[in-house]
Amino acid sequence: MEHKEHFNLMQFFEGYVRNYRRFNLSTVHNRSMITQREISHFANLGEMLGFDSFIEDTKFDAARGRSRPMDLAWWKLDIDQSEEEYAFLALHLERENVRSKDMETIDKLFSETYANYVPHNVIGIQHIESVERMAFLNEEVASRNALQGSAALMMYWHYDRKANKNYVYGEFFGPYGERESKQALCSADSFGYWSMNLVKVQPVG
């Protein structure tokens, strides 16, 4: 059986939260720029960890019979095994701003594919319409990951209209059924620049 290299993805979530101010994103930036900066953050992280990072790489999707783009992929090259072929797909990341595409994001992360394209780790970052919807999506991720066996991190952005606050929920799904949750509050300073802070976890649903 193949040994999978799983990451402590909740640590990645904390790094994302603590470094968000360094992205230099403000209230005047559009969603495309926000997506670009966030993907670049994880692309740079992958390279610092010794992986090859590729933005808009492709992965075969058996259900559709064709390849589909990955927003970001980390590949591991082990020259002791091969100088030409990658040993495994270390990470598949998807970033989605459109709330109605939440299931499409999950479909991409947990698609049936060639054995060497099954990611050891996955990260999904997406906006959601409600915390009730997040509970539904979490069950989908847990069910699909039980088959895929990745370390999975879903980061859900949700704007609470009643409280007028932006929350980011980090939901971790381990390869053996482990679960962990963290929450962060995203707010703009007096100059309009976004930053985040971890907050006490509140029950979902």
Rank of each mutant, 00 (worst) to 15 (best):
F54V: 15
A146P: 00
R144E: 07
I55C: 11
F54T: 15
Y20Q: 04
A73H: 05
N138A: 06
S181I: 07
S150F: 04
S82Q: 10
M10Y: 06
G15L: 04
N116P: 00
E139R: 12
E140V: 09
N138F: 03
P119M: 08
Y159F: 13
A63R: 15
S190V: 07
I106S: 05
L49F: 12
D80R: 14
M154H: 01
L137F: 06
D160A: 03
R21N: 01
M155T: 06
E112G: 09
Q148V: 14
R99D: 05
T35W: 00
A142E: 12
T58K: 14
N166L: 09
A184K: 02
M103T: 13
H6I: 11
L72H: 03
H92C: 05
L93P: 00
A115W: 11
L147K: 14
G15Y: 05
W157I: 02
L153K: 01
Y16P: 00
G124V: 04
L93C: 03
D78Q: 08
H3D: 15
F7N: 13
V17I: 08
D52V: 14
G46I: 04
D57H: 12
G65Q: 09
N164D: 09
S187V: 01
S150C: 11
L45N: 03
M48A: 12
L77Q: 10
H6Q: 14
A87N: 11
I128F: 04
N24T: 08
S82G: 08
